[in-house]
Computed example of a mutant assay.
Amino acid sequence: MQLKQMRVGMLYVGGFVGPFAAQSLAAVIPDIAVTFDKTVQEAAFAVTAYMIPFATTMLFSTAIVHRFSPHKVVRIAYATTLIGAIICMLAPSWKIFIGGIVVMSLSNAFTLPILQVIIREVTHPDKLGGALGRYFAMQSLGNCAAPLVAGFAAIVNWQLFYLAVIAVALAMVVIGVPGIQPLAKNTTSEKVAWPPMIVHILTILAVGMSIIGMGAVLTIHLESVFSMPASQRGFVIMAGGLAAFFFAGRIGGAVDKYGALRVLTACTLAGAAAIALVPHLGWPVVIALCWAVAFVGAQGIQTTVTYSALRTPGGTKFNSTVLAFRFFGLALTPVLLLPIYFRNAAAGFAVPAALLIAAMLLQQWQGRKTAA
Rank of each mutant, 00 (worst) to 15 (best):
Q2C: 00
L3Y: 10
M6T: 04
V13L: 13
G15I: 07
G15S: 11
F16G: 01
Q23K: 09
L25V: 13
A26M: 12
I29Q: 02
D31P: 01
D37M: 14
D37N: 15
K38W: 03
E42V: 08
A44P: 07
P53L: 08
F60I: 13
T62N: 12
A63C: 00
I64Q: 05
H66Y: 15
S69D: 12
Y78W: 12
I83E: 12
I83Q: 08
I86A: 13
M89G: 12
A91R: 11
F97N: 05
G99I: 08
V102A: 12
I114Q: 07
R120L: 13
V122P: 03
P125I: 11
L132G: 00
G133E: 01
F136Y: 14
N143I: 15
A150L: 05
G151F: 11
F152Y: 15
F152M: 13
A153C: 12
L160S: 09
A164L: 06
V165L: 04
A167H: 11
A169E: 11
M172Y: 07
G176L: 04
G176S: 06
V177S: 05
G179A: 15
L183Y: 08
E190Y: 06
P195H: 03
P196R: 09
I201A: 04
I201S: 02
T203Y: 05
V207H: 02
G208C: 12
L218W: 05
V225K: 15
S227E: 13
Q232V: 00
I237C: 08
A239F: 04
G240R: 00
G240E: 03
L242Y: 03
A243I: 03
A244P: 03
A244N: 02
F245M: 09
G249H: 04
R250Y: 12
I251T: 07
A254T: 02
V255F: 02
D256K: 02
R262D: 00
R262F: 07
L277C: 14
V278K: 05
H280S: 14
G282S: 10
W291F: 14
V293H: 03
V293K: 02
A294H: 03
V296K: 07
G297S: 06
I301W: 02
V305Q: 01
T306S: 14
Y307H: 15
Y307L: 15
S308V: 09
S308Y: 02
R311E: 15
P313T: 09
P313Q: 10
K317W: 06
N319G: 00
S320M: 05
T321M: 15
V322K: 07
L323P: 05
F327R: 00
G329S: 09
P339I: 10
A354H: 01
L356Q: 04
L362D: 04
Q366D: 12
R368W: 14
